Simulated assay, not measured.
Amino acid sequence: MSIWTRIAEALAALVRGEPLSVVFERLRGETSPEKSIGFTIAVIALGAKMAKADGEVSREEVTAFRRIFTVPDGEEAHAARVFNLAREDIAGFDAYARKIAYLFNPEERRLCADDHHVLLDVLEALFQIALADGNYHPGEDDFLRHVAGIFGLDDGCFNAVRARLVEGAPRDPHDVLGIPHGASIDMARTAWKRLVRDTHPDVMTARGVPPEAVHLAERRLIAINAAWEELSGREAA
């Protein structure tokens, strides 16, 4: 059974008039919530809320969901229904973000740049949707920074993701690796190795990233390796 069929079943359980956010509450109430379903609905729902952050919904932003999730033929309607339910819900994006944060981080602990977590994967997916039209609008930056704060992700997390993905953003290699400026080369090496390990498809799947979306990490890995090469090159010089 595909993830899209399972999502369709979760949506079918909604009583007429119930908002999409109820799905997150029901997943949270399960003994072993299906994280891949939660991840996929979270990205699509928040992506729908973000789609107007730059003042318009572009074709590229909508089709970005297909690139991120590789929606197979015949399953588009399930993804479209999630998108439309979120768009139609009068609740603000912050209400969605809080339910998603609690689903994946029920202890509400603060997360930092060296603590890779599924919420960081959700944030990275949202960045890639924001960048799908080739522009990174200030409204999208504000939206994503706010979401990161609700998720409990610190400034180091947000700056690291932005540095990895946004062309033209400040891209200090220390920010990309999530380490303090002036960190030793040994600390940089440790951070690089940890991030490469956390980007492995098996590790991402275990965190709850569905196999259809694991390729999200490709751009992250390129930036991580480039940051390490820059820092190790400085040391060698």
Results as ranks from 00 to 15, higher is better:
residue 32 S to M: 08
residue 167 E to L: 13
residue 56 E to K: 14
residue 149 G to C: 04
residue 116 H to C: 02
residue 213 A to C: 09
residue 110 R to F: 00
residue 6 R to N: 08
residue 207 R to F: 14
residue 179 I to M: 03
residue 66 R to G: 04
residue 109 R to I: 10
residue 163 A to M: 09
residue 76 E to T: 02
residue 109 R to W: 02
residue 191 A to C: 06
residue 82 V to F: 05
residue 158 F to N: 08
residue 173 P to Y: 13
residue 113 A to M: 06
residue 167 E to T: 09
residue 143 F to N: 04
residue 107 E to D: 15
residue 53 A to Y: 07
residue 142 D to H: 11
residue 124 E to M: 06
residue 110 R to K: 12
residue 18 E to H: 05
residue 71 V to W: 01
residue 215 H to Y: 05
residue 148 A to K: 03
residue 215 H to W: 12
residue 27 L to A: 04
residue 61 E to G: 05
residue 191 A to M: 02
residue 189 R to F: 02
residue 132 A to W: 05
residue 212 E to V: 09
residue 230 E to D: 14
residue 68 I to E: 12
residue 156 G to I: 00
residue 162 R to A: 10
residue 20 L to C: 06
residue 173 P to F: 15
residue 215 H to E: 10
residue 117 H to W: 11
residue 81 R to V: 01
residue 106 P to Y: 03
residue 59 R to G: 08
residue 192 W to V: 01
residue 142 D to F: 03
residue 1 M to H: 14
residue 36 S to Y: 12
residue 130 A to F: 10
residue 12 A to Y: 11
residue 171 R to C: 15
residue 155 D to Y: 02
residue 41 I to E: 07
residue 201 P to C: 14
residue 196 V to I: 04
residue 115 D to T: 07
residue 221 L to F: 05
residue 129 I to Y: 13
residue 72 P to F: 08
residue 114 D to R: 03
residue 133 D to R: 14
residue 181 H to D: 05
residue 13 A to D: 10
residue 216 L to N: 06
residue 144 L to H: 03
residue 70 T to K: 08
residue 45 A to N: 05
residue 183 A to S: 13
residue 8 A to D: 08
residue 138 P to T: 06
residue 236 A to H: 10
residue 190 T to Y: 12
residue 31 T to C: 03
residue 55 G to R: 14
residue 103 L to E: 04
residue 118 V to L: 01
residue 183 A to C: 03
residue 151 F to H: 05
residue 134 G to N: 14
residue 135 N to P: 05
residue 191 A to V: 00
residue 196 V to P: 13
residue 132 A to C: 10
residue 125 A to V: 01
residue 220 R to V: 03
residue 62 V to L: 11
residue 10 A to M: 11
residue 230 E to P: 06
